[in-house]
Simulated assay, not measured.
Amino acid sequence: MADARAAPPFFSQDAQGVFVGNDSARGPWSPAHCHAGPVTGLVARAAEQEVGPDKMLTRLTLDILRPLPLAGLEVSAETTRHTRTLATTTVWVRDLDGTLCVRASTMHLVRKDLGEVPTAPVTPLRRDEAVPGQFFPDRGPHQKPFFADFIEVAYPPGFSVGVGPKTMWMRTPQLLEGEAQSPVQSICALADCGNGISWNARPSEMGFMNTDLTLHVHREPQSDWLAAESISHWHGTGVGMSQSVLHDTKGPIATALQTLVLHPPS
Rank of each mutant, 00 (worst) to 15 (best):
D3W: 12
R5K: 15
F10C: 10
Q13D: 11
A15P: 06
A15V: 13
V20H: 10
A25Y: 10
P28W: 07
C34S: 05
C34F: 03
G37L: 03
V39P: 02
T40S: 13
V43E: 01
V43S: 04
A44G: 05
R45F: 10
R45G: 09
R45S: 13
A47H: 04
V51R: 03
G52N: 10
G52W: 08
D54H: 12
D54A: 15
L57E: 03
T58S: 14
L60G: 04
T61E: 11
P67S: 09
P69E: 02
L70G: 02
A71H: 10
E74R: 15
E74V: 15
V75L: 05
S76P: 04
S76E: 13
H82T: 09
H82K: 10
R84K: 14
T85I: 13
L86Q: 14
T88N: 10
V91L: 06
V91M: 08
L96D: 09
A104R: 04
T106P: 04
H108Q: 08
H108Y: 06
V110Y: 06
R111Y: 07
K112T: 13
G115K: 05
A120R: 06
V122S: 05
R126F: 07
V131Y: 11
Q134S: 14
Q134A: 13
D138I: 12
D138R: 08
D138H: 10
P141Y: 12
Q143Y: 03
K144I: 09
K144T: 15
F147V: 09
F147P: 01
V153P: 06
P156L: 06
P156W: 02
P157C: 11
P157Y: 09
G158C: 12
F159T: 15
V163D: 14
G164R: 05
G164I: 07
G164M: 09
W169N: 01
M170N: 00
T172D: 01
T172C: 10
T172E: 02
T172Q: 07
Q174P: 00
L175R: 01
L176M: 02
Q181N: 02
P183W: 05
V184Q: 00
V184W: 00
I187H: 00
A191V: 07
C193R: 00
C193Y: 01
G196C: 11
N200F: 03
N200K: 09
P203V: 11
M206I: 13
M209Q: 03
N210I: 08
V217L: 02
S230M: 05
I231Y: 00
I231H: 00
S232A: 13
H233D: 11
W234R: 00
W234L: 09
W234F: 12
W234K: 00
G236T: 03
G236Q: 06
T237K: 03
V239Q: 04
M241V: 14
S242W: 03
Q243M: 08
V245K: 08
V245N: 04
D248V: 05
T249W: 04
G251E: 02
P252H: 06
T255Q: 05
T255E: 07
Q258A: 07
T259V: 12
L260F: 08
L262M: 12
